[in-house]
Design a protein around this nucleic acid. Structure first.
Lengths: 247, 247
DNA sequence: TATGAATTAGTGTCGGACATTCACACACTG
DNA sequence: CAGTGTGTGAATGTCCGACACTAATTCATA
């Protein structure tokens, strides 16, 4: 039986400022796009110094809830997905997650993405996908470029599926996993061709609006990647050595 | 053909400070747990004022790369998963993602979580799961408590699976989706019982180390949830009305 | 009306200041 | 020696005031 540890947390002024503004954004009192008053004005609004306001604003900025298109305009914003991705990616890297962990999740997300894409695809989206695919075909042998284009290909597939939650969830994971291509390719040179072929089939299935086939090929594609991971002996290896190199 | 608009971005001092420290953390020069110099010291290290350093630090703090257990200790940290979750959750709420989007993803994550749990479970983890399940059984009829315990149940299942990436990816999504329970329960009172039954079966399958059955029950469980969503007519409804209420 | 110049106001940064309180070291007690 | 009290110093949180630079706005001009 004991004393519960409860946060006393007599929040500092700069924290309360941040929280206050945050609240108003989340409540909807402040709407995305709306412009906030100047620092000086806020300072006297909240009864603190400008320095204190600024410290609070830095936090909101970093959280993506406000942004400054130019130093003079401070507007309410919706956090950008890619920023969140970066952050998740960094965290996973710092946690030293393994290829196995990444792969298990990616297998599922990419299958889902492919299926949804086949269900939802519109012609222009397919065209965009094809053009990406062709670019990738041309990049055969170039690991760096392949990784870049592969990532964009899969992102595009996901985008076609019109599921923003999936987009949010898969992005950092897939990104980290596919980076591993660089470590695998030297062991399995035929990987380029296999990848291109799998992508072809995925595109084909999406174009044919065949969700099942799309999902199947996505599965094959990602399973194939796992084989590569195994050949390279990376299963339980941390997926990212040098976290810094992520950006 | 034109001049590309490229970010000129003559970074401000406070940004550079943040980036510099960030770099050193990501590179590994600064290791988690390590303590940083005082603000004054940093200020003269970087040749700026303390105010400027502070603004930079606020960003790092908010990113979770450093934390202050007490105002006097500033230590390098690994971003906490729950903080990331909060942020993703907020973003999804602000984006007004639908139940459909959340559900499509959750179906897959929870199936995977259940399967992995059945493969990896250790006895004490199962015990913990059972105890959670009993608590939930006792909460029948209480929506708020049910949501809380249901969330913890699913998180525990995921934790048993020993896949941190899955944990990271599913947490905010599942959290948001399951909150919908409160809107569904009034329409489908028998939901409490169905949920308890499904959880029982999941626990049973995990205990029996039967991945397939675990996955199957997880699927049934989440599919059932979708039926609830449909009955309540929420399919394409934004999953979170009042973002603020996310806590 | 559209273009350019002038004005103004606000940001980024600086330096200094002070109260509070926390970290560390030391003394004290059992 | 372990564990508890005390005291000192230092660092934080907050404040104030100031200035250069630049971007938003206003005004003048064609």
């Amino acid at each position: 039986m004991g004393l519960e540890r409860r946060q006393i947390h007599v929040a500092y002024a700069y924290q309360r400022i941040a929280e206050e503004i945050e609240s108003q954004i989340l409540e909807g009192t402040l709407k995305p796009g709306e412009q906030l008053p100047g620092e000086t004005e806020m300072a006297e609004m909240f009864g603190v110094t400008r320095s204190t306001v600024r410290e609070g604003l830095r936090r909101l900025e970093s959280e993506g809830l406000v942004c400054r298109p130019t130093p003079r305009r401070l507007v309410v914003a919706i956090p950008r997905i890619d920023r969140l991705s970066t952050r998740s990616g960094r965290t996973m890297a710092l946690m030293k997650v393994t290829y196995r962990e990444l792969w298990q999740v990616t297998l599922k997300t990419e299958m889902l993405a492919a299926r949804l894409a086949a269900e939802m695809a519109k012609d222009d989206e397919i065209a965009a996908l094809k053009s990406l695919h062709e670019e990738l075909t041309g990049a055969e042998g170039n690991a760096r470029r392949t990784i870049e284009l592969d990532g964009r290909f899969h992102s595009q597939v996901a985008r076609i599926g019109k599921n923003r939650v999936l987009g949010l969830a898969r992005e950092p994971v897939a990104h980290l996993l596919f980076r591993g291509f660089a470590q695998i390719a030297p062991f399995v040179p035929q990987f380029y061709k296999r990848q291109i072929e799998a992508h072809s089939n995925i595109v084909g299935a999406i174009e044919a609006r065949d969700p099942v086939r799309a999902e199947t090929w996505a599965r094959k594609h990602i399973e194939d990647f796992w084989r590569g991971v195994q050949i390279a002996g990376l299963e339980d290896e941390a997926a990212v050595k040098n976290v810094k190199a992520l950006s």
